[in-house]
Design a protein around this nucleic acid. Structure first.
Length: 191
DNA sequence: CCAAGGATTGGC
DNA sequence: CCAATCCTTGGA
């Protein structure tokens, strides 16, 4: 596909951990009332399947998590701690609940705020649950643009703030670009 | 119906 | 370190 074009549903339908890594270096865009707000993604996390004890899908297709059970390429946006919105992209096959949490990006254009951390990333782009949850990411409002592979090395680590998930907390399903100053939380040297 | 707690953040 | 703040979930 042409570099710079929007990612297709086929892209999001891929295996979740691969999609999480493939999103790094790509550009997340929100066309906000005609204003293009964008960041280059530098940190993601995979939430994989109904058995993942860290995933919102662990309780089944509840009202909140229903989007994760739907087709790939849609936005799952939720409110956490009554304060922060978090943006995920639904991945994998329809019926299998999986998503990639977009945790941080480096500012590209018209950002409203720091984009370091999942709540901040949403604030930077003007993404909110009431506006964007369930939105089709192959549309023209909120989408990710394809591009060349990032020059930085991709590093993995356990996911952040999911200690409650028992042994699932150990899975190295957090991915980020090594050396990026825009990555949130703990930054291991390498893996 | 009610209690508990969270895929976070920013301030002390 | 810890409170903010509200929504979601599970259990009575």
């Amino acid at each position: 596909m042409a570099s710079g074009g929007r990612l297709t549903r086929r892209f999001y339908a891929g295996e979740t951990c691969q999609v999480a890594q493939a999103l790094l270096g790509k550009v997340l865009v929100h066309v906000d009332a005609g204003v293009r707000r964008a960041v280059r993604l530098v940190e993601t996390e995979a939430y994989l399947g109904p058995d993942d004890r860290a995933s919102h899908a662990r309780f089944g297709p509840t009202k909140r998590a229903a989007v994760m059970f739907g087709p790939p390429g849609f936005a799952y946006v939720y409110l956490i701690y009554g304060l922060s919105h978090c943006l995920n992209v639904v991945t994998g096959a329809e019926g299998f609940p999986a998503a990639v949490l977009l945790r941080a990006g480096e500012p590209v254009c018209n950002t409203l705020h720091s984009s370091r951390g999942p709540g901040n990333l949403c604030r930077a782009l003007g993404v909110r649950r009431e506006l964007h949850n369930g939105l089709d990411l192959t549309g023209e409002t909120l989408f990710v643009e394809d591009g060349p592979p990032p020059p930085e090395r991709i590093v993995s680590s356990p996911r952040v703030n999911i200690a409650y998930a028992g042994e699932w907390a150990e899975r190295p399903w957090r991915y980020f670009l090594e050396g990026s100053a825009f990555v949130s939380g703990p930054r291991p040297r390498r893996r």
